[in-house]
Design a binder for these strands. Structure first.
Length: 738
DNA sequence: AAGAATAACGTTTTT
DNA sequence: CGTTATTCTT
């Protein structure tokens, strides 16, 4: 308690009724949350099992558990610290039957959902050209976020387009129940529906949760809002923590009014503001305030800090996207020279697509990095295939998963056969595994195909049996082999499957770890876990790498050094936000979130030209740059624009042309030889000899000029005839002596 | 049914 | 551009 400031202490100690904590960025809200939980247990006589704490990411939940465990010195057993989604799944699993689901329901992710929407539209014979599955999917999600039933959506629909979309929604919804699957939206809306239609169950949870804590309240949607309102009705002891300035999830249904109207929604609300920032320098905070203060309809506040002024904010105008990346790397190497570890440095961007250029340049420069998000681990084809097998084994015969793996690896069951089974299923209202024997009996399919289908069902039956007596790690290993999947990947003369094989191995290793940590868990629990885990949850800050991350994923994190890149009109703020005032306001908040992640150094970059879809386009600096008081900025012109405002020299210096890749007189073949003959050879010595030749996967062969740094962490300067002088980190770049 | 060739689509952001 | 979906050919 002594470590807390006055406001923080009041926030911890007020436990009598509804409490709104307006916690600015870096104001120590996680500290308040953990201390408050401890206070409830120690001083208010509340048992751990009577507290519900909700966060938005598993990472935040785990961190909170960990901190409580350390502070309190007790196990967090019984505490409900989880995300909205995990908490809802837990409730739903316990009472699935009362809303027409079986306990073994599975969760559809975004792409499963899209496939299922499409299937529904095909069933309804809707022209997929006129009504796009993707927009129907969005409309369904919008409905669920706002707790609108298909009927309610139909009522609100004015255009024919909306009307038919609402019709699909209705059909989709009943098909999902029949299929025993839920999408992300269902997890919340079905939990609400469950509690609404079962007063006894609701009562049980109302009494159970004597205190409710909610983190990131500004990002809750209507469904989450209603859920909280219902659960808190009994004791009215709810504490929400949030910052209206950091609301950045409008696109997935978050309603900023939830936090702005909290005082109206609950009676006798205590409001506590945390405005002292413990994270950033004065200059960084002033810059952030410059940007956010231009938003209307926000709760007025300004953060302050006792920290020093700090450096000015660097603002670099690059010529191109590639130039931008090169500049960032050069600056990173300077920080590195100054003794700042890579893990203290992060690069933020608005869209995932922007990461590619950075990845390329980081690889070339030999700087270690980790990319968060992008192509997510669990979204990879091979991982999704294995998960599909697991879902089927777990007993839900959901059609999307079956379709996914019925012919992977090849079993001679093609599109035609699958369609036959599907038709039979819809005609008779049965599931896949009861349709198959019927179909065989009626002789609707040819004999050899019958055999193949029977073999497939036998395979699944065998796996189910295996699953009943073995742990999840063994099960995955077993099915990997039994299904022939392993063999399929191993048959790979070109070595193209290497990554996939590694991914599966990693997945198996992860499963074993899961088993070790919680040996009791069944298959559904495991599947719930992986369907709700994101990359950020697995993010491990222990390894020394630069973090590449989207602004959205960066929320909740902090770094001593932050690069905010692509600060250009159209990129950030994104072009799709231009025609709505609310969307621009949200982009502004996102910018605020980005700036306030920085502790010591903030570097902003923008490029004068950028490639999108491989087409170069001219870029103007972001409007947000103008909103930062200019005396806080140190502008650096990287030669993007000449004095007259037109380009000098190469119009698009970052453009990668055929010429760039092939200017080497020896041609591509020569480059390939270098890689084959030198790059993959084993090297046992780790001494570096000045004057010796080394092969680099990208730059080819060069001569070592100098070595800096300690053994095991050498920084090499190498002269490459083809690429020029480069500074390379020995531990990261795969160099070969030759 | 499998594999190859061709077309189409996409870039906000994610639990 | 790169990935995925669809169509064509065998």
């Amino acid at each position: 308690m002594k470590k807390l400031n006055d406001a923080q202490r009041r926030a911890v100690e007020y436990c009598d009724g509804p409490l709104l904590i307006l916690a600015g960025a870096g104001s120590g809200k996680t500290r308040v949350l953990t201390h408050k939980t401890m206070y409830l247990i120690r001083n208010c006589g509340i048992n751990p099992g009577e507290i519900l704490a909700v966060t938005f990411t598993n990472k935040a939940a785990n961190e909170m558990k960990e901190r409580i465990r350390k502070l309190l010195g007790i196990s967090t057993w019984g505490l409900w610290i989880s995300t909205f989604h995990s908490a809802c799944i837990r409730i739903l699993r316990a009472h699935a039957d009362s809303i027409g689901y079986s306990k073994s329901f599975t969760v559809y992710d975004d792409s499963d959902q899209k496939a299922f929407v499409k299937k529904c539209m095909v069933d309804l014979e809707i022209n997929l050209e006129q009504l796009k599955p993707k927009s129907v999917q969005q409309m369904i999600n919008r409905g669920k976020n706002n707790l609108l039933s298909p009927e309610a959506m139909l009522e609100r629909a004015y255009t024919q387009y909306d009307k038919s979309a609402a019709k699909v929604y209705g059909y989709y919804q009943s098909a999902m129940v029949q299929n025993n699957t839920m999408d992300f939206g269902d997890i919340l809306s079905n939990a609400v529906a469950l509690l609404e239609s079962n007063p006894d169950i609701l009562k049980k949870y109302q009494q159970m949760f004597r205190y409710i804590l909610v983190d990131e309240y500004q990002d809750t949607n209507i469904a989450q809002y209603s859920l909280l309102k219902m659960l808190a009705k009994e004791h009215k002891k709810i504490c929400v923590v949030g910052d209206d300035d950091q609301s950045i999830y409008r696109f997935r249904g978050a309603n900023i009014l939830n936090i702005l109207n909290f005082e109206r929604d609950y009676k006798n609300v205590e409001v506590i503001k945390l405005e002292e920032n413990y994270r950033s320098t004065k200059n960084i905070l002033k810059a952030a305030h410059g940007v956010i203060s231009l938003n209307t309809s926000r709760k007025a506040k300004e953060l302050f800090t006792q920290k020093e002024e700090g450096d000015k904010i660097k603002c670099f105008n690059a010529q191109s996207d590639v130039h931008e990346a090169k500049y960032v790397i050069a600056e990173i190497l300077k920080f590195c020279d100054a003794g700042i570890p890579f893990k203290d440095i992060a690069i933020f961007f608005r869209t995932n697509a922007q990461s590619r250029v950075f990845e390329e340049e980081f690889f070339k420069a030999g700087v270690p990095y980790i990319l968060i998000g992008g192509l997510k681990f669990y979204a990879r084809a091979e991982i999704k295939d294995i998960i599909a097998y697991l879902k089927i084994i777990s007993g839900v015969n959901d059609i999307i998963s079956i379709k996914r793996i019925i012919n992977r690896p090849r079993r001679g069951i093609g599109k035609m056969t699958f369609e036959k089974v599907e038709k039979y299923m819809t005609a008779n209202g049965c599931d896949f595994f009861s349709a198959v024997p019927d179909l065989i009996d009626t002789g609707a399919v040819k004999k050899n195909i019958c055999r193949k289908l029977a073999d497939f069902t036998a395979l699944i039956t065998g796996l189910k049996e295996y699953a009943s007596t073995n742990n999840i790690g063994d099960l995955i290993k077993h099915l990997y082999k039994e299904t022939g999947y392993q063999e399929m990947l191993a048959d790979d003369p070109l070595g193209e499957n290497k990554d996939r094989i590694n991914n599966v191995d990693e997945f198996i290793a992860g499963a074993y770890q899961f088993v070790e940590e919680s040996p009791e868990t069944d298959l559904s629990t495991f599947l719930d876990f992986i369907s709700l885990v994101s990359d950020i949850d697995k993010y491990d800050e222990s390894s020394d790498r630069v973090t590449l991350i989207t602004l959205h994923s960066a929320k909740g994190l902090e770094f001593p050094v932050v690069f905010m890149t692509g600060m250009e009109e159209g990129v950030f703020p994104h072009i799709r936000s231009f025609d709505s005032k609310e969307d621009i306001a949200e982009e502004r908040r996102l910018c605020y979130v980005g700036i306030t992640r920085a502790k010591q150094h903030l570097i902003i970059t923008h490029a004068s030209s950028r490639h999108t879809y491989n087409m170069p386009s001219l870029q103007k600096p972001s409007r947000f740059l103008k909103d930062i008081p200019s005396h806080l900025l140190e502008r650096i012109n990287g030669g993007g624009l000449s004095k007259r405002g037109s380009f000098s020299g190469d119009l698009f210096p970052g453009r990668r042309t055929f010429h760039d890749f092939h200017e080497d007189p020896h041609g591509e073949k020569y480059q390939q030889d270098i890689i084959e003959n030198h790059f993959y050879d084993e090297d046992s010595s780790n001494e570096y000899i000045i004057g010796a030749k080394y092969a680099h996967p990208v730059f080819g062969i060069g001569i070592l000029k100098s070595v800096e740094g300690s053994p095991g962490n050498e920084k090499l300067t190498i002269y490459f005839p083809r690429a020029g002088r480069k500074k390379i980190l020995a531990t990261f770049a795969k160099l070969r002596r030759c």
